[in-house]
Design a protein around this nucleic acid. Structure first.
Length: 683
DNA sequence: GAGATGTTGTGAAA
DNA sequence: TTTCACAACATCTC
């Protein structure tokens, strides 16, 4: 049987050749032919929020993989076909006489939904499917089974389960040879011949014209209308297998309608880069052996990170998680110094957290990315929640929420909140597609339970769009953690917008880098330039309220109100699957029972022009500071943005004077007036 | 049922 | 630099 096996190896979550148990399983079939395929899925192009940086990283990784395949087998390469996998793959099986489809298990909810359809199609086509776990340390399916179908909600739970599952498997080497991707009666002598033959075999296939099978057909989540980064036409689906001059080639950024000049490619994709980075990290045995995540500084940039910055490579499978695990173990052994760190704070512990979120997501499914229907997610009456239609489908674009929250979300996304620490982090994210884990803590807590009281779903969407390493399990998992919706409950622990970064870097290097308009402020005021006396601001060449925005809210006041509000929500003890939540009555109930306040109503944008904000940090032309195009849509609230910052000088000085007066009493002037009357709990 | 524990808070006091 | 109160959560162990 195995002699005549003809394998289609479908790459998805595993853009590598080293330590790929699935690829090994394919080779174990001793196939007569092996087709290394990437199906350029329109659902990923249109129906997932993916920004330029993640697409760039993915395309680089695909190109690197293709090169790697060719250097292993000169007459092979990554065969990129463009179309809906459920339609296209069955055609390939038929035309290439495929007997086996081999895949690395994709444990995400979307992956499982897609693969279920593929399995059904394969059954009809009499193609055998071989699916092998390889993306995590342990198989989320197996862990969930051992946890009786329940989500793994704590590190100790996960550790207890996996302690019975044996060691993490040792990594295996990359194959030294690969079978050829040739047709049964092939006469090809070269890669070029092979590609031509394969292209001829696909003649007559219609090219894909839709926007993916998932969700409403017309919706393109990455279009600029919906706040995305696609401003040009998608052309990658004009052919099934690429242009005749570059058959089965990796698409370009331009062909997915995105402009590469808009991002900074600090983090390069690909398996070779990943392996080199890992080797360099493991050379420093002390670093690996004493690594303690909470002690690493969020104030360092991607060029000189305090962490490994390997997450993007794990996300796309450019790096095997088992290789990282065992190389770290080996490095640790070499360290003869004092005390070594252990899980959960060490490197291996970080990988265990990744598994914990994957296993939790596996048990919950699609709802893991949302509040509603998510049994582990505590319900809070956040502003800007996700809306659903009568059929329970998410409404896109999202109907507008209150104007102030929309405006705050927009400023947050652009890094123009008036809080340097938040703005530097958000601009770093937008520009480079990465942010230190503790920086993510800061901005996530700020948006949700800390200051803005905006749903973590909105924050997760922004991360979804900008982060290279976005992961369907870790990202929502961490947003629930930081918003105290799940996994973590100590809501009285909150990150200060100046105190927390100052713990790591009193000089504010990250702020100076990403908020250059603030670069000349003395250390004392770098995280709170709005507290600097007027002469200091003048000397720094940056007047707050004119060259850099005034803070968009009062940090301490919102902190106090929101903490009280968290307490009330915890007492109400509603979750995503509570009856009141599913029936849409939770907000009214909470409001009635606990006297919650309405959303804030005033937002004085005239005092937030920010004329010295660098061009790259500004909103795209025509979308300056409008909530139109906020993630998931918006109401286009009347938020004004003055590019030159001179139109509203009177208002600026008025505010500055008030600020000066209040400085004596160490109280900051909030940009948003406080609501009349405090919320009162009834107990 | 009590007490300890939980990767990653803050600010004052010792 | 370390320790503890803050006002207080859920979960795990005994």
């Amino acid at each position: 049987m195995s002699k005549s096996a003809r394998v289609l190896y479908w790459f998805r979550t595993d853009l590598r050749l080293h330590d790929s148990p699935a690829l090994q399983a394919a080779l174990d079939l001793k196939p007569a032919a092996l087709f290394p395929v990437w199906c350029w899925d329109p659902n990923y192009v249109y129906k997932h929020r993916v920004g330029i940086n993640r697409f760039r990283f993915l395309l680089e990784s695909m190109n690197a993989l293709s090169k790697n395949i060719t250097s292993t087998q000169s007459n092979s390469q990554l065969l990129v076909v463009r179309g809906e996998p459920t339609e296209l793959l069955p055609e390939l099986w038929k035309r290439w006489n495929i007997t086996h489809l081999v895949i690395e298990k994709d444990p995400s909810a979307y992956g499982r939904r897609r693969d279920k359809l593929i399995r059904e199609a394969a059954k009809k086509s009499k193609v055998e499917v071989v699916a092998v776990q390889g993306h995590h340390l342990y198989d989320p399916e197996e862990v969930t089974k051992r946890n009786k179908g329940k989500p793994t909600m704590s590190m100790s739970t996960l550790q207890k389960i996996v302690s019975d599952m044996g060691d993490v498997p040792k990594p295996i080497d990359a194959p030294k040879d690969l079978p050829l991707p040739t047709l049964k009666d092939s006469k090809s002598k070269s890669l070029k011949d092979t590609l031509s033959e394969l292209a001829r075999s696909l003649e007559g296939l219609p090219h894909y014209t839709g926007k993916g099978r998932e969700g409403p057909e017309s919706v393109d989540l990455n279009s600029t209308e919906l706040g995305g980064q696609r401003d040009k036409k998608v052309t990658c689906y004009d052919t099934v297998n690429g242009e005749p001059s570059e058959l089965f080639s990796v698409p370009t950024l331009a062909s997915i309608g995105m402009d590469a000049s808009k991002v900074k490619d600090t983090i390069k994709g690909g398996e070779p880069v990943a392996l080199e980075k890992l080797a360099n990290i493991c050379k420093d045995a002390e670093y690996v052996a004493t690594f303690a995540k909470p002690k690493t500084s969020p104030g360092q940039s991607a060029e000189d990170p305090s962490t490994t910055l390997l997450s993007p490579y794990l996300k796309f499978g450019c790096l095997s998680v088992r290789k990282l695990w065992w190389d770290a173990e080996e490095a640790k052994k070499k360290y003869k110094g004092g005390s070594k760190t252990g899980p959960p704070e060490n490197l291996n512990g970080q990988l265990l957290f990744r598994d914990m979120y994957a296993c939790a997501e596996h048990a919950i499914g699609d709802a893991f990315q949302r509040v509603k229907g998510n049994e582990v997610c505590r319900y809070m009456d956040w502003y800007l929640p996700t809306h659903y239609d009568k059929n329970g489908e998410v409404v896109l674009p999202r109907p507008p929420g209150d104007a102030v929250s929309e405006a705050r979300l927009s400023a947050y996304k652009l890094g123009q909140t008036g809080f340097p620490w938040i703005d530097a982090l958000m601009r770093q994210l937008r520009l480079e597609g990465w942010m230190h884990h503790l920086g993510r803590h800061s901005v996530a807590a700020f948006l949700t339970r800390g200051q803005c009281w905006i749903s973590w779903e909105r924050g997760a969407e922004i991360f979804d769009e900008y982060l290279i390493d976005w992961d369907p399990c870790s990202n929502p998992g961490n947003w629930m953690w930081l918003s105290c919706s799940a996994f973590f409950t100590q809501y009285f622990r909150l990150y200060g917008l100046a105190t927390f970064p100052a713990k790591y870097d009193k000089t504010g290097a990250l702020v100076r880098k990403y908020c250059p308009e603030l670069a000349k402020f003395p250390d004392k005021y770098i995280y709170e330039p709005f507290n600097a006396p007027k002469d200091v601001q003048q000397k720094a060449g940056c007047i707050i309220g004119k060259d850099y925005p005034f803070p968009m809210l009062d940090e301490k006041a919102t902190k106090g109100e929101n903490m009280e509000r968290m307490k009330i929500c915890y007492q109400a003890n509603l979750h995503g699957t509570s009856k009141e939540v599913l029936e849409g009555k939770a907000d009214d109930m909470l409001k009635k029972q606990h006297g919650f306040k309405d959303p804030p109503k005033e937002f004085d944008w005239n005092n937030r022009p920010g004329s010295k904000i660098p061009d790259w940090a500004k909103a795209p032309k025509g979308e300056e500071h409008t909530t139109k195009g906020a993630p998931g849509g918006g109401n286009g609230a009347p938020v004004k943005h003055e590019d030159d910052g001179h139109d509203s000088d009177d208002a600026v000085y008025e505010q500055e004077d008030e600020q000066k007066e209040e400085r004596g009493s160490k109280k900051r002037k909030p940009a948003v007036k406080q609501e009349e009357g405090k919320s009162k709990k009834k107990k």
